[in-house]
Write a protein that binds this DNA or RNA. Structure first.
Lengths: 267, 267
DNA sequence: TAAGAAACAAGCATAAACGATCATAATCGC
DNA sequence: GCGATTATGATCGTTTATGCTTGTTTCTTA
């Protein structure tokens, strides 16, 4: 029985009843409990199900960090579902890098979005140009949200300054958290050219640039270069990153954090 | 029987009847009383039900604490439904005052919000500090949304500049559309003092100040004065406005438009 | 108001489920 | 083919869910 078959079976069972017990899977699947667990783990990381003690269940909106605010009424990209579990772990690891009370910048993206739930209570001042991030942070106890001046770009749901200035002349932060469409030898890339200008400005204002990118981001390489690898200080990814990619990153002097293996720090 | 099944059963019973007795759950659930208690405890912690002696019941508004925006008078989401018909007419009349292609400013509020649907296709550039307005205009064909720099105030859902400047130094518009908590001899008033500073700044940037206020706004007079009647150029209201209020407005030299009787322009 | 019954909370024991680690087999890429 | 990577199976210590017991609180009713 191949992993494809198992995966299909598991997901179809969950689709039908919303939940499968581990014992049920043990009966239906030829294979050791360990294999089943690994299947569940993988599928959970991809955001296709949610693991619970004794089995697994369907993912619902509450698991995706959907913001209650009306701003979140803007349809999210399918991207949010992709590798959801990994993004949640990466987001949590990124949030752990924030010092209580400091100011940070958070760029828009489905991965950086997963930082937000973990920022409550840190009393941060968060500058972001992403309305998705604003919606996720709004109403969070102790978190102050700052936005630059500019025009709202509805497709990306971000604010970009239209005059030369953006009303945040003196803002500087110890840390900037960024997403990425892909990361390759050329550097960090975004699929959308509109994003680039805004991100360049954020980079200039940060002491440390931290990039949140799950392992899949190291595969393709299409897009517009935002910055070279050398400009990045830290990349947070997951353990499925290929050795080759990890070597490339290390060669550029970038610190690499593996979110799902907190102790394993390569580079 | 797994915790998911139990959870689903409990919540569905509560959804249907508003209450489940503990004995009822004991009969339906295979498991010890302790397990059921723990389920109820957990669900109550998640806010999905409210525990009462002998069972559990649906959570209602009284259990959820004061709504966050209720600090500023009537909560926004309730306010939206109040006098909705009049507000829609007033909003439509206000939108009719906009010239295609021009830049306008729209202050936050449940009445100004009703302008938004009628602005599509006018190719306006709208500066607003209200995230509610942003959400309503976003994705609208031909409308460009501008926001000032600043901190997001979650209770009012608006952006207020925190540094001296707001990144819109050269912005000036022929028209500003404002809401109001009440209008009296002292002038235009808002229930929330936080709103005042932001609105003052908008007023300074406008050639013409247009206030959207249904007739009920002329009754009470509690709040903080934003500007005197003389600073207002136009008020759009509905035909239920009292003669006395209309006279007061006219005496201040304000143009009064009646939204539900387009031809009747008093003053 | 006081006694009895029901409901409840807290602590403890146990078995199932879990995560981590290592070893082995299958697969892939050069 | 050979090394590297990946998938699988087995083991072990830890965590979690559940059930039971005990003592306390709350409701009922006489």
């Amino acid at each position: 029985m191949h992993s494809n078959e198992r995966e299909e079976l598991i997901l179809s069972l969950i689709r039908d009843k919303g939940f499968v017990s581990f014992r049920d899977l043990e009966r239906r699947i030829v294979g050791s409990p360990a294999t089943i667990r690994r299947d569940l783990e993988r599928l959970a990381l991809e955001g296709k199900l949610k693991r619970v003690h004794g089995g697994a269940k369907r993912v619902d909106a509450a698991d995706m960090g959907a913001a209650p605010s009306s701003l979140a009424g803007v349809p999210f990209h399918e991207n949010v579902h992709l590798n959801l579990g990994e993004k949640q772990l990466i987001g949590k690891a990124a949030a752990a890098l924030c010092q209580p009370g400091e100011g940070v910048m958070i760029d828009g993206g489905s991965t950086t979005l997963q930082m937000c739930p973990h920022l409550a209570g840190l009393n941060l001042q968060v500058l972001t140009n992403s309305l998705h991030i604003v919606a996720a942070l709004i109403g969070q106890r102790g978190t102050r949200v700052l936005v630059p001046a500019g025009a709202v770009f509805p497709e990306q749901n971000i604010i970009l300054s239209v005059f030369g200035e953006d009303g945040m002349p003196r803002f500087h932060a110890p840390r900037l958290f960024m997403g990425a469409a892909s990361i390759g030898p050329q550097g960090l890339m975004q699929a959308d050219v509109v994003l680039v200008a805004g991100e360049r400005r954020l980079i200039e204002r940060a002491d440390e640039v931290i990039v949140l990118a799950d392992a899949s981001k190291f595969e393709g390489s299409s897009g517009n270069v935002v910055c070279a690898l050398e400009e990045i200080d830290t990349i947070i990814t997951d353990s499925r990153i290929k050795r080759k990619a990890a070597d490339m990153v290390a060669a550029a002097g970038v610190r690499l954090l593996i979110a799902d293996q907190p102790r394993a720090v390569k580079g």
